[in-house]
């Protein structure tokens, strides 16, 4: 009996070590999928008040509660990329309306709870990214006064200011990266884009 249990223990230990090695190798070989995107083309915008990308992805357990409570249904999930099972936003499709409910429902602290949705709290806690204007294709910079992005900005006058002929100017200090400007842009492809916070430039 004693020999049997010892043998089982040995079996268990050996198989644990070997399966850890094999599965670990598989996880490492999928590094392309798991790689933390650093270029603008691959990086995604995370929900508001998310921890820095690395810490966020290790904290998030993929329960999808943030997506459930979002009144705007702008939080999406991908099973195969962008941090598997972790939430992200495609702001051209649907932008964040800064209600801060997702930050309060998150059980893991991957999204840090923001107590209220007042401007001060949002400015203090939220930095999803920063809008960037492409002057080549922006209507207002090319002789057609537009101003759709400035009107959509929740921090109009601070984060996104309009010069003469509605030419938009972003103040990176105040821009929280909600993406309402990108959503509102009437140029195809959009002339104002949110650069995700995880992009290292």
């Amino acid at each position: 009996m004693n020999r049997m249990t010892r043998r089982r223990l040995l079996e268990g230990l050996l198989s644990t070590v070997s399966s850890t090695a094999v599965a670990g190798w598989m996880v490492r070989s999928r590094a392309r999928v798991l790689a933390r995107a650093e270029s603008w083309r691959e990086a995604v915008i995370r929900p508001p008040a998310a921890l820095p990308e690395e810490a966020f992805l290790s904290r998030c357990i993929g329960c999808r509660q943030c997506g459930d409570v979002c009144p705007n249904a702008c939080i999406q999930f991908n099973r195969y990329a962008n941090g598997i099972g972790a939430p992200y936003l495609r702001v051209r499709e649907k932008a964040c309306i800064l209600c801060m409910r997702c930050t309060r429902v998150c059980p893991t602290g991957a999204l840090q709870a923001v107590p209220t949705d007042t401007g001060e709290d949002i400015q203090a806690h939220v930095k999803m990214g920063c809008a960037v204007v492409d002057k080549n294709i922006c209507n207002s910079y090319n002789g057609f006064a537009c101003g759709a992005c400035v009107q959509a900005c929740p921090f109009k006058g601070q984060a996104l200011k309009a010069l003469t002929w509605e030419r938009p100017v972003v103040d990176p200090e105040f821009c929280v990266g909600c993406g309402l400007c990108e959503k509102a842009c009437i140029v195809y492809p959009q002339a104002i884009r949110v650069k995700p916070q995880s992009v290292k430039s």
Partner: peptide, 24 residues
Amino acid sequence: LPKYVILVAGALICLLFSVPFLFW
């Protein structure tokens, strides 16, 4: 036995690589 092996190995991978391996 394999389920305990998978549990321990999965937990080790979570710990070593910081990926939610058991979630998948």
